[in-house]
Amino acid sequence: MLDILLIRALIAMVLIAVVSATIGSFSVFRGSTFFVSGIAHGALAGASLGIFISLNFFGVDPLLIALLFSVFFAVIIGYASHRSENVDIAIGVMFAFSMSIAVLFLSMIREYASVAWGLIIGDVLLLTASDMILLSVSVVTVVILFFVFYRRLLFVIFDPESAEALGLHVLRYETLLFVLIAVGVVALLKCVGAILVYALLIVPAASSRRLFGSVEGTIAGAFIISLISGLGGVYLSIYLNVAPSALAGLIAAIIYSISLFR
């Protein structure tokens, strides 16, 4: 029985590495990493609302509500960033609002808080078959859209005004990027938890940006660093009997510190 859970965990880590390579790298290029942790907490708020609903009203997958919440936030922030230069305030407000919602519902479902706790710190070794389906479908969708719009997204991140002048619909592409980030974050939520989404999505991409330079190099490097962190975390957790996502986050952070000395 442990075998299937382990295999699922390893597959999940590969899929997470794909998200880090694509969405993570572009978030680093755009300087939108605060947005990523904001969205992770927005997703957490959605999930705790989902748990509350399924306990009191009708059955619904909390991750589905998490997805709705984070995509909604992504669209709002996409619009806000188009209107003003500094969106960090808007993201901060979303962050605070999300945490208030999360704490509100978690305090109402106290006896089931362990379910929610699973989404805060995640557990990649407890993934169900339906979690795997959700994870694979979201990652495949994100990756396909990412590569279809790859150059347009790059252009819009690099120089939005010129992109717009050449007829690209900047608001549309920025929103697309934000929605892709939101979907990627929700995919990771069950595996690594809201707190550690940043550790596995952004930290590998940020290290890779420092180590490998070019756009393609950053993408390839982020995949490898995220994979090393993820698989290393799972492997060590079996011996040390602690949460794999925490170990993965530590490995990623150590790699980042090393990249600083380059």
Partner: peptide, 16 residues
Amino acid sequence: INLNVPLKVRDVVLLP
């Protein structure tokens, strides 16, 4: 212009 994007010179000119 966002210099955080590690584009090569050729990428910049090819983008349009």
